[in-house]
Structure formats: C-alpha cells, structure tokens
Design a protein around this nucleic acid. Structure first.
Length: 556
RNA sequence: UGACCCGUGGUGUAACUGGCAACACGUCUGUUUUUGGUACAGAAGAGUCCAGGUUCGAGCCCUGGCGGGUCAACCA
C-alpha cells in the first residue's frame, strides 16, 4: 500500500536533499514499559516503522526504562507482541535505555568535569520553588557553583548508595532565567533505591528522561527522533545535550506530531491503568479497551489498524478523531475477508408446518460474496428453525420489509416461507411462529419469478450450536471523557458497554473456529471467537455491527 | 501577563518553489442486490479564525489581533 505523505516525510525529504547524516534515515519507537500499548501508540508505530520502510531506512525498538518504580517485564513482553502483531519488525535492533546506564553515567561525569553539571543538596520542594514559573524566572541554587571536585565526590557517593533517596540530585547547569522551564538547570540524575527490571539492584541513581532520550538516539545513530507535541518544549534541552556529544556532522533531530485523540475514549496510560487496577474493565485486553491487545481480542485486524493510521494522517494539529472512522476501517477489511456464517442472537422459534418432521437438507451457502474463491459450505435445514426476533413484527409499520402475519420472505439459501400463525403464551408474548415453505423455491429463488422484499438469516434448531455472544458499546458516554476539569472521567462510563447474550444459536460451521478467527454473522456484524470459549460453549465478541440503515431510519 | 506550537466543509487530512480549495469518513438521493451489508452513481456542505499589507494574483509570504494547546513531576 502506498502510504499517504505527511509533513514529517516532507522534512525528511528536505534533510535528504541537503545530504544530512550521509542520507541515512533511522527512526525508533521508544515506549516506556509501564503499561500496554494503545491505538495512539499504534499510530506512532506505523509512523516510525512506516518512515523506515518508505525511505529505505531502519527503525529500532527501544524501551525507555529509566524509572524502575513503574516498569515491568510483563509490559516489555506485551509491547513486543503487539508490535509484531501490528506487522512491524525491529529485527536485531532491540534496545533499552538501560543499555546506556554506564555511558550515561560517564557522560554525567564529563559534564561535571566541564562545569556543566552540579550536585544539589536541596529537597524537591525547594528546588521546585526556585524554578520560578513560566512567567517569572527562577533563582539559582546555593549549591550551583561548587567545585568540580566536590561535585564529583558527591556524585560518586550518590552512585555508591551513601545517601537516601531525595537527598541529592545531579542537575545540568544551564540557565535559571531561561524562558523555557526545561532549561532551568534540569535534574538529570536522581537517587532511587528500586529494583530495575533489567539491571536489578546494580544502580541507585537513575537518569531522567531528558538526560537519556537524546543520548540514546545519538548512540543508536537515530536521524529522526519522532515524538508527541508535549515534548516540543523539551527540544532545546534535547539539542543542548546532543551539542555536548556531537563530534561529527551526524546529529539526530527531534520532530513532534500530535498524539491521537479518539472520541468516547481515554488514551492516557495512567487512566487506562486505573480502569484495569480498579476493575472497571477485565484487564488490559478487555475488548472495550483502546489497547492494541483489547482491539485484537475485540476482533480488529492489523490491516485495519494500519489503514486507520494512514487515513487519519500525521500533523501538529491537536484534534479529535471520530471512533466511527476506526470502525469503518475494520468493516472495510473484514467485509473483504471474513467468512460468512448465519447466527441468531435473539432467537424466535419457527416451525415450517409443511416440512417433513425427520428431514434434513444440506443447502449450499457462499462463504464470502466479496471473494468467491473462498468457496461454499453446506448449511443444514430442517422443520424447526430459529430466526431473529427483530425480523418479525405482528403489526409491521409501512417500511418494515421483514416477516409478518401472512407475509412471505426468503430464508437465505433455503426457501420462501409464509407466516401462517403466531403462537403466544399467557402473557401475550410471541413464543413461536408457524410458517409454510414453497418447496419450489429451494435455494432461495422461486421459478415463477416471484419477488420477496426481505431475506432473513436463520439456524436449524436441532443443528444449532448454542453459544454466548458479547456485544460491546463505547466505554464512555461522553465524547471527551477526560476533557472535563471538574468531573472525573469515570463518571462518564457507559453502564451498558458490555451486553452478554448467553443463548445464541449459530450454524454448525463455526465448530471449527479458532480463537481470534473472524466471521461475519450475516446481516448482524463482524464477530470473532473469544479466548474465554469452552468446547461446549463458544464465546463470540462482536467486533462491530454492520451498517444498518433500517435501524437508522427507525430512530427518526 | 513569558516561551514554544497550532488554527482549511460536521470530523480528519490535501493543495509541489503564491495561480480562483481536493480527498476520505459522515450526511442526503437514487441504482443494483438471495445480507435494509457491499458495490455503483449523484447531491448538499468550507471560500481557508479576523484585520491589514506585499503581489497582476495569497489558504500558502509579512504585520497585528483573536481563539486553542503545551510547559512550573527527583514521570515519560
């Protein structure tokens, strides 16, 4: 597929034209392993790996693991799985910021020697108060001007574990009166006596993001370091550190783009973690989550996510994308590829009164009208079947084309049937329908050329596979759940985001389904087999319903 | 009362070094159809935040406003 061009591609073109970095293009995707990847990360992954592809370059995977208190191996593993599933590969270029702890530490010492970094004894609160505000410049720390020797000694003792957490930090010596807060002597090393998922207890001092990121880029030979908009103000600091390292023409360049915002969803890892930890969803891969693992379990395909990422484009405009565009992308892909099958979600029994009791016929059904090469299958038909309750109305309104008393409709791939009787229980609820079929219409066409207005899906009662179907709706009822200053995003949770239908009937074909297999249940939507399935009871997730112009018309 | 960034149909993006605004989704109409799906055909919908300026000509360049976002974690 030809990827849409964007402003970053244009800038890279320009860099190439200028012959920068020996015409190399090298990007990286740098997740912090403190949570699962979400659709916003997918956008970034498609961007970074996509650039490597387009320009014949490379893209590294680098875990940004400089904060041991939040990072875990579980996250590392899920992230790698998700990237591969999305269809991208870092080959042999798997890195960690922690790979550079040694070099980073040496670099810090070099800065100290050059009088460009110093140890500060003050606590967090004091340092913060001296930082000033965006509109008022800061004041210098009383420890700012001690000697390189003293700084070196203190930093070594910090490293050796002689001090408590929070008692000392190492700061870059830049400019306390800079209009850019990030240049006001940023902290570059802090003491943390925490177990690191890779380096264990080797270190008690850890570099901050700003001190690790650009340097890691530099050492990996990254040419274009693409990140989200909120890091824009960090760029001067990124450049400042690179200035200290640069020894040849080679230089990485940071470019920022707008992160993805989707309607009716929250995207911050902190909030997603909260939903998981507090049990509002069943885990990171709950099919209602915007995580890659959640989307996968819900039945989204990598292709559809990649197409979505391409469709939404890449800019610096902080916008909000309608989830319906994501849904469109899956429908588009699944329409072309999904095996069709018939399944009844809200069953209503129908007895074909003029069909023999013991007879069963095997009818031919097309597996995918969009791809005839997928062939056909046999669907069993018998005297008792189930149809969708919504497909019958006792007193149908004008535009209702489906079954009603005395009406004739087609049962897909089977027969024309006419409703003769409506059976009710004592409460007046419809429990059963009696119909007659026209034997001449076998397969779904009448030789006399008679037309019917509707085609219904159905399942033979005695052959049906009973199964559970889970219907999902948006997790939040508000378009922008975390966009309200005074209301917690959880206030907007949709109590009906999950509806479980325990007694659905599916045609026998789905017996062979494997977890994650995609199907279109004809006239209903796209579904896939959930990992919760048991042999006796399969469980299907509804990925997304089909477009439904009847339902839409009804709303009016 | 600082710095940086952003401002094109309802939404998201286009418009190469200035040449009377294009595409996708959505919406609405029809056609086809053994899925009220898909496909196909067509329509409506912005004059590019505002005001000046440069120019034969500006969404693109300049100036000034207005609106929105980001930045004051020993998070990333």
């Amino acid at each position: 597929m030809q990827l849409k061009s964007n402003f970053i591609h244009l800038q890279i073109d320009e860099d190439l034209k200028l012959g920068k970095n020996n015409n190399r293009v090298h990007t990286r995707f740098p997740p912090e392993p403190n949570g699962y990847l979400h659709i916003g990360h997918a956008k970034s992954i498609c961007l970074n790996f996509g650039i490597a592809n387009k320009f014949g370059g490379k893209c590294n995977l680098r875990f940004d693991d400089t904060n041991p208190s939040k990072e875990e191996t579980e996250y590392v593993e899920s992230i790698m799985e998700d990237i591969h599933w999305l269809g991208f590969d870092w080959e042999d270029r798997l890195f960690y910021a922690s790979d550079y702890f040694e070099k980073l530490h040496e670099f810090a010492i070099q800065l100290i020697r050059n009088g460009k970094a110093y140890v500060d004894d003050q606590d967090a609160e004091t340092i913060s108060s001296q930082k000033g505000t965006p509109t008022r410049s800061g004041i210098e720390s009383p420890f700012r001007n001690r000697s390189a020797e003293e700084n070196l000694d203190l930093f070594n003792r910090m490293t050796a574990g002689e001090f408590d957490e929070g008692s000392y930090v190492l700061r870059a010596k830049i400019d306390m009166s800079s209009p850019n807060m990030h240049m006001r002597d940023p902290i570059i090393y802090r003491i943390m006596k925490a177990h690191h998922h890779r380096t264990g207890n080797k270190w008690v001092v850890y570099p901050m993001y700003d001190f690790a990121h650009g340097q890691s880029d530099f050492w990996e030979g990254i040419t274009h370091s693409i990140c989200t908009l909120e890091f824009e103000v960090h760029r001067p600091l990124y450049d400042w550190f690179v200035d200290q390292l640069q020894e040849t023409e080679y230089r990485p360049r940071q470019i920022e783009f707008a992160r993805l915002n989707l309607t009716y969803t929250v995207m911050s890892k902190r909030k997603l973690l909260e939903l998981v930890k507090d049990g509002h969803v069943k885990g990171w891969d709950d099919p209602r989550m915007p995580t890659v693992s959640g989307l996968r379990r819900r039945g989204f395909t990598p292709e559809s996510i990649r197409n979505f990422a391409d469709r939404i484009g890449v800019t610096k405009v902080d916008g909000m994308i309608d989830v319906s565009l994501l849904e469109y992308s899956v429908r588009e892909h699944l329409n072309k590829t999904a095996q069709r099958v018939m399944g009844v979600l809200n069953p209503l029994k129908v007895v074909i009164t003029n069909y023999p009791e013991d007879k069963t016929e095997e009818l031919d059904a097309i597996n995918n009208p969009e791809d005839l090469e997928m062939g056909t299958r046999k669907v069993p038909f018998s005297r008792e079947i189930y149809i969708e309750r919504d497909d019958f109305m006792e007193d149908p309104p004008r535009k209702f084309f489906r079954l009603g008393p005395g009406r004739e409709v087609r049962l897909r791939y089977a027969y024309f049937v006419t409703c003769t009787d409506v059976i009710k229980n004592n409460e007046g609820e419809i429990t059963e329908l009696h119909c007659t079929h026209d034997p001449a219409s076998k397969g779904g066409n009448s030789p006399d050329g008679r037309k019917v207005k509707a085609t219904l899906h159905w399942v033979s009662a005695k052959h049906a596979i009973k199964s559970e179907v889970r219907l999902y709706d948006r997790l939040f009822n508000d378009e922008n759940p975390d966009g309200h200053k005074d209301v917690d995003f959880k206030e907007f949770m949709n109590p009906e985001s999950l509806k479980i239908l325990p007694d659905c009937y599916l045609e026998p074909f789905i017996k062979n389904a494997k977890p994650l297999d995609h199907f279109q249940f004809e006239r209903l939507g796209y579904f896939n087999l959930d990992s919760d399935s048991a042999k006796e009871k399969p469980v299907f997730n509804r990925t997304v319903p089909l477009r439904d112009s009847w339902a839409k018309a009804q709303k009016k």
